[in-house]
């Protein structure tokens, strides 16, 4: 029943025009970035390497597909949560708004299974968005710009990663990026269980992300104690795979925090939906 309902939920996602907004927006945004990098990539990158280029000369293809993929991933990881929340924030509240949730709850399926099927459908949608981003960012970029060593800008300097050592980092990076986007999807599904319309959960999800991101970026010692437990702090954990010495302990902690968020938010959703008075 769970699988069948997950399939039904996927059909609902596929039938909504807003589900394609994410794919369309990603394609457009990445297209613009690719065009900008093709037109003026060297100047864009020289802004990063400028302080070194007073004394050093960088030789080789600096602007390559790997660098473009890294830039795309870094730029879009902030915006993709909105595209995810647009769909997943509507999964429960959308049905409440349309009045179809009563019919769904009257079917021979438990409420927990309804929530889990919506969660799995949301996870599959999030996975497809991540795959699409990976395809456009990495495969299309490498097709246009070729491959090469990757220059990564960190706050304490530049790391140049050899070409042969890049792909596995991207693969694991995308896995962690998927996990962080799944956390956003679960958050919006959770908020969706509390709402009767779609706008509330979507706006609330983005507000939480913005507030948490600002707290995480501020270098204020008062926030130091809570920063490690904010999921937004770990949404950039994918980046750790591009360090000179990969901080595996830090990555595992990030994965733990993200999985814990998913588990807690899903539990809250299950509890709320099971206790919910369905009156619509």
């Amino acid at each position: 029943m769970l699988l069948k309902n997950t399939y039904n939920e996927l059909l609902k996602i596929v039938s909504k025009p807003r589900s394609y907004l994410g794919f369309g927006a990603l394609t457009l945004l990445i297209g613009i970035i690719l065009f900008a990098m093709k037109a003026d990539g060297k100047n864009i990158v020289s802004m990063v390497t400028a302080s070194f280029e007073q004394t050093l000369v960088f030789n080789g293809d600096i602007v390559n597909g790997n660098l473009v993929a890294f830039i795309i991933l870094q730029m879009l990881i902030v915006h993709i949560p909105l595209l995810i929340a647009l769909v997943t924030g509507d999964l429960i509240s959308g049905e409440a708004a349309m009045g179809t949730i009563r019919m769904l709850a009257s079917k021979p399926i438990t409420r927990s299974q309804i929530v889990l099927s919506k969660f799995f459908a949301g996870a599959i949608y999030t996975f497809l968005i991540t795959i699409w981003m990976g395809f456009l960012a990495l495969i299309v970029s490498q097709f246009i710009f070729g491959t090469g060593d990757l220059i990564v800008l960190n706050s304490d300097g530049l790391v140049i990663i050899p070409e042969d050592d890049v792909m596995w980092r991207f693969l694991l990076g995308f896995c962690v990026a998927f996990l962080s986007l799944l956390t956003v999807a679960t958050l919006s599904i959770c908020l969706s269980a509390f709402a009767e319309n779609s706008i509330g959960p979507i706006v609330s999800t983005m507000s939480i992300i913005i507030v948490f991101t600002i707290i995480g970026t501020l270098e204020v010692s008062a926030f130091d104690a809570i920063k490690p437990y904010l999921f937004t702090t770990h949404m950039v954990a994918w980046r750790s795979y591009f360090s000179d010495q990969i901080p595996y302990a830090q990555i595992y902690f990030s994965i733990f925090v993200l999985v814990a968020h998913i588990a807690v938010l899903l539990s809250i959703t299950l509890f709320k939906f099971n206790k919910k008075d369905i009156t619509s």
Binding site: S155, G157, H234, R239
Partner: peptide, 23 residues
């Protein structure tokens, strides 16, 4: 042997907001 100027950029620019490497 060359002179290298100090290089420090804000974490928000590099996107490396989680780095806590001790110098």
């Amino acid at each position: 042997e060359i002179d290298v100027k100090k290089f420090k950029i804000p974490k928000s620019v590099s996107g490396d907001i989680n780095s806590k490497k001790k110098e």
